[in-house]
Design a protein around this nucleic acid. Structure first.
Lengths: 249, 249
DNA sequence: ATCTCTGCGATTGTCTACAATCTACAGACG
DNA sequence: CGTCTGTAGATTGTAGACAATCGCAGAGAT
């Protein structure tokens, strides 16, 4: 951590430097401490490393990350407005606790946003879009055969992200990102019962067929069912082991 | 998003203090400078006082408001994640510029969120909800008769806010607030052509009737049309006088 | 004339110290 | 014994100074 600032020259892409520049030099990132802190904390929350209820003390973070409180505070403000943490003035900051209602809301919102997106994508009738989605699902099925749960999850996210992006609706995309973030957090927090990975992947196929046929109502119906069943499973698991989820500190 | 902290006194409900407490003392506000700055700037942006493209210099704001840069920076981070401003590192912060596409997206998103809400509200079948909405519309019609454009606008906002709140979906509410905020900004920026205020108010009545009858598809259809026509009008006006909207600085 | 480099002013990014506020607990007071 | 009061410790809120970076103008080289 505490990646020190990179020299300016590395980021410079003005013409005289690009002249015959050999490619594939790894892009040097010069993110502000605020951004690094933000990314680090957000990732920790989304992966469940920082559990709901966990207390975030600015001074502790400051020491752990080896930076001052100012950029940390700015990062916390952002996380706060993203709804991942809560701050009580002069008292403390904690990772937002989740209720079963929160989870139901997250999935119902996913459903709403995605069905809107799928309608837009179908109307656009862009064959490349459908092909791209098919490719992702195929990879997903293969990863499912290999029982590679991590890859399946990533590809599943890719699929739904791609669907939203294809709608070409930037406001939708930004709201989606908020919701998808929360969904990711929830998924990381529940101990999912083993399910047939291949089956999860295959579940996407009927949706693709409906999209191929341009059948909007059917596609929306399939998508809704797909998300609802995923949401129900997660909500059940949540109920089951919700006792272990709040962290005292 | 934009969940404001309640002042300490509001949160204190311990028994010994509530015992025979005389009411009606004006609540003492102790908002942090960050919150005050946030509210001030956000309001200025939403009312069009700060126009798209206007440059926000931390040092200037600091002098104008008579506070240090730290709380201002935190407020700016929040406005940034709300999508109202944009910051280029080491260069400057400006009020986000709006394109016609932005406006179309704002209204299509409003449409999506509100039709979801109206479905939930109809399903809940709560007569008080419908009565509350009717009351608002009645006031709106009266304000329309008086040609009181400001009151009509406020009541129109109240109506749609109420609709969302009644859905009881807190995540929906938070996304709605983001979108409604942007819509408010857009409305403040266009010089709306005079329209019949009474007519605007009356336009809400068919929707209420459909809700009364529990006719979900019809209600959604009416709502969609209502919002779409509003959006089209605004988009037209935008096109017309978009030249005057960007502020140089 | 054109290109390159260097220094300058403006602006944001970060650090440190100090102030304000909250909670909890101990002790005074009836 | 219960109620109020005040103090201590922890935590967030704010201030002011300094560092880093960017864009640009202008000097100098070709």
């Amino acid at each position: 951590m505490v990646v020190r600032q990179a020299p300016a020259a590395d980021r410079d892409t003005s013409a005289h430097l690009n002249w015959r520049m050999k490619p594939n030099l790894p892009q040097i990132k010069n993110l502000s401490i605020r951004e690094q802190t933000l990314d680090t904390l957000r990732e920790a929350i989304l992966t469940g490393e920082l559990k709901p209820g966990h207390s975030l003390i600015e001074m502790d973070l400051s020491r752990q990350l080896g930076v001052s409180r100012a950029p940390i505070r700015e990062a916390l403000r952002i996380l706060n407005s993203e709804g991942l943490i809560e701050t009580i003035p002069y008292h403390g900051t904690t990772v937002r606790r989740l209720t079963r209602t929160d989870i139901e809301e997250i999935y119902s919102m996913r459903s709403l946003l995605e069905s809107f997106a799928v309608e837009q994508v179908i109307r656009a009738r862009n064959p490349e879009h459908l092909q791209r989605l098919r490719d992702i699902v195929e990879d997903m099925i293969m990863a499912g055969r290999d029982n590679n749960i991590n890859t399946v999850n990533i590809l599943d996210r890719d699929f739904h992200d791609a669907l939203i992006e294809m709608s070409g609706h930037s406001l939708l995309l930004s709201m989606w990102q908020t919701v998808a973030m929360k969904a990711r957090q929830v998924m990381a927090l529940v101990n999912r019962r083993n399910t047939d990975l291949t089956q999860i992947a295959r579940n996407h196929l009927p949706l693709l067929d409906a999209m191929d046929q341009g059948d909007i109502p059917k596609a929306i119906e399939l998508l809704r069912a797909h998300i609802a069943s995923a949401g129900d499973l997660v909500a059940e698991d949540w109920q089951r082991d919700s006792a272990a989820l709040d962290e005292e500190t």
